[in-house]
Design a protein around this nucleic acid. Structure first.
Lengths: 343, 343
DNA sequence: AATCGGTTTCAAACCGCTTTGGATGGCGCA
DNA sequence: TGCGCCATCCAAAGCGGTTTGAAACCGATT
């Protein structure tokens, strides 16, 4: 059942039927109702392919997922972000198109999406320091929103991000307040923008108390269980090991815990752990009582917000870059306690 | 730059240019080359919206993701599957459209995708026992492939699945061979088809050795860290606790490990653990030496295969349902050992 | 009765491609 | 020379909607 057939059945022109369905004012209310009823009765759905061609809009948002080396992106955080964004899209009648491409084709993927008219806007994931994709997307000329920020980008852009620096600053301060002075940082890869910011929050908190940075207490690697395990193990085996560890994610935290427990230490007594918790739906930090003390912010919510922002930019590109900073909360769990006395 | 403009520049008709670019035979080789060159030079990309309307094909595959209650689906397994499938799609010039909808709208989502012509086929995720969606998708009338199987479905359908029953049968047998007789099962939700099959593999292996099922040693819950922790804890606190545990996933396994270590037991000596490892890219089971002994199969590979199968069905729907059974390998890690002697 | 502004409706063009059904021209062959 | 057959190329008609510009209709005003 297409528009023409429906119009024929009603004895109206396609023009009028189209207008009636799309809520244009220049159609008599009684005919509109007639049209609406007929559409429902015949279960009419306009063909999206036709709408897209006619309007020149795709009613779709693109997400490019580079594959191989930067495979960080197919990670739990990404999945939850997608869920949040997808929710917003479908509520607004938009499709979400995911483009999974080999790293080296990432640039092409963005250009293709635009040139072939498959999407009206894009979300940029996992920005790096000085990320060249910001300039690329400007060049491509579609509205876009970055999940995170890209230190060093000179062009303006829209973003939704959590205040990573402040989160890690607060977490570090909290540990310092508990008397810890040897605090290890199990960070994500430090070409990722968020990791840089976290490190700077950590460094600033230490500096404020006059504690020098110790490179041996700072690691940077993927946010996997194994990497967390390895980094924590290295630090714990130092002659002067840390009494507290900051981990970049729930998953890193699991690895840290494994390393700690393997050494027979008790978490919260012998050693304190704080993680950053992205509040993932299937990777909860405990139930009522959190397992880990954590800086928490919802990625899914970030996904929702980024999608809303993007849709608004698509509707009105002239409004210029938007930004939204989310604050993480510091929630206290069982994994932190006062620094053990020396000896 | 669109087809008409390109044709004008070349002094040819749009027809010829279209044919030249699409490899039709009725065009002179020299003009074809001329066209190809011009297309490249002017960076011409056909407008997908127009192609879609003209051909009546969407060049896109749909994945519906129900949100709320069955939120299992936004899980690591899903993400990796998507990555595999997406890879196949983009290699074949297809888009992947994700539709994230509230549970109650799931049926509508499938129908919409079809009625509005947004996709040429769909993937059905996380099938349940007697899953009504199989009949629904038949009714909708688009080619589809199920990731997993749906026990009790009476209609034929295409699927890609791992042999869950055999995987858990083998894992259980392996533990039995090590002398374990009290073996706990930390399963996924048992309305999920794969969980049923795993349980039956477990049950069959025990039955073959004449060991009766003990309900206290079987749990069924979401595959989260917390659920794994809780289930394992309950079993370990029994008067006659298990000496071995089977966990449904890497994440459940983490929870199991937490429960075990909390009780001061040593994994591989006091208690053996086998997990099912979906070989997730960011949740590796250790590096060279696996942390957990595991039944392993790659979800990402399953995603690739399912996508390939679906594309072939889209190209030739007449070929009828295809199926593909994957076998999991049993890999030996550090988490299993002989049953401790009684006493 | 003629004019007019406002409301409804419609025919036709258009979006950018594919595809059908010819046209055209060159060539070999009778 | 004339014919038929390919090999090439093209004009035009879709695909199923939206949108422009104009027509038709209406009651009210002059």
């Amino acid at each position: 059942m297409n528009l023409k057939e429906l119009a024929a059945k009603l004895g109206l022109s396609p023009t009028t039927v189209s207008r009636a369905l799309n809520g244009y004012p220049e159609v008599n209310e009684s005919t509109r109702e007639r049209v609406m009823a007929a559409a429902k009765r015949h279960n009419y759905r306009p063909n999206t392919r036709a709408i897209r061609l006619a309007t020149g809009r795709a009613f779709a948002i693109g997400h490019v997922i580079p594959l191989a080396t930067r495979h960080e992106i197919v990670n739990p955080i990404f999945a939850d972000f997608i869920a949040g964004a997808g929710e917003t899209y479908s509520r607004n009648g938009y499709d979400m198109v995911l483009s999974v491409v080999p790293d080296e084709n990432e640039e092409d993927a963005y250009r293709d999406l635009k040139a072939r008219g498959s999407v009206d806007g894009m979300i940029l994931h996992a920005p790096l320091m000085n990320d060249p994709r910001i300039a690329l997307l400007h060049d491509v000329g579609l509205p876009f929103v970055v999940h995170g920020r890209a230190t060093g980008a000179d062009l303006p852009y829209s973003w939704v991000d959590v205040n990573n620096r402040r989160a890690f600053l607060r977490a570090t301060e909290f540990l310092l307040d508990l008397g810890h002075t040897r605090i290890g940082l199990v960070n994500g890869l430090e070409h990722m923008d968020f990791a840089i910011r976290r490190r700077s929050g950590y460094a600033d908190a230490l500096a404020a108390r006059g504690i020098a940075l110790d490179p041996a207490l700072m690691s940077s690697d993927e946010m996997t269980e194994v990497a967390g395990y390895r980094a924590a193990g290295r630090m714990l085996d130092l002659p002067d090991p840390p009494t507290a560890l900051l981990a970049a994610s729930m998953i890193s935290g699991m690895g840290v815990r494994r390393a700690v427990e393997e050494r027979g230490m008790e978490i919260g007594r012998d050693i304190s752990i704080i993680i950053h918790d992205d509040d993932l739906s299937y990777m909860k930090n405990g139930e009522d009582v959190p397992i880990f003390t954590a800086t928490r912010s919802s990625v899914r919510e970030a996904g929702r917000l980024a999608a809303e922002m993007l849709l608004s930019l698509v509707a009105e590109p002239a409004q210029g870059p938007q930004t939204r900073m989310l604050e993480a909360e510091l929630i206290i769990g069982q994994s932190t306690g006062p620094a053990p006395r020396k000896g």
